[in-house]
Design a binder for these strands. Sequence first.
DNA 1: TAAAGTACTTTATAATATAAAGCATCATGG
DNA 2: CCATGATGCTTTATATTATAAAGTACTTTA
Lengths: 95, 95
Amino acid sequence: MEMNNIPEMFQSKLRLMIISALIRQPLSFSALRQLTGATDGNLSVQISKLSEAGYITVRKEFAGKKPLTTCELTPLGRYSFRQYVELLNSILQGE
Amino acid sequence: MEMNNIPEMFQSKLRLMIISALIRQPLSFSALRQLTGATDGNLSVQISKLSEAGYITVRKEFAGKKPLTTCELTPLGRYSFRQYVELLNSILQGE
DNA sequence: TAAAGTACTTTATAATATAAAGCATCATGG
DNA sequence: CCATGATGCTTTATATTATAAAGTACTTTA
């Protein structure tokens, strides 16, 4: 089957969790850390990868004097996730 | 003498060091930390006080993805420091 | 002079990023 | 088939700053 078509970006549990969380609404770094339970370093790296892949946008600003990082799913990210789920569905159906 | 006129802002060794360092040119938080040897917390607090007093300006931006804080002496800060030195001089001369 | 009030300093913790080191997995060549 | 690498994720340590809490010192004041 199309196992080879599984996009790079979905081959990591953490990235998958991040994308899943962002399906509903944009979230801050802290919120993602709490939802995923990931370490800061790992989360930071995987966010960068998703961003470089164009799956999410990362906005940085200062909330008062402290940095605030907000992540949001892009249309491409959303679309790719849908494709991925469809692929899994089709695999499940034998096709 | 005018001992009572010693401005609040010059009654802390750390603030004095910060202002002295900024006389020549603007400096980053890190540079100030290195020059003064102060702890992060203390430096941060004293920078805020100098800023609130209008003696320095504090600019925040992202250098790449990391925060960068730059401090610069204001005309008021420079003027006040001059006044302070003059005051000390006059005290030294018996007023 | 003991108790209070002020202000500075240290320490701990929070928000993120990067680099280095550790691990696991997968492909290769003997 | 097994030792070697190449990849890539994860953890750990460290870097930038900020804030809150706790410690310390000095100065009033009753």
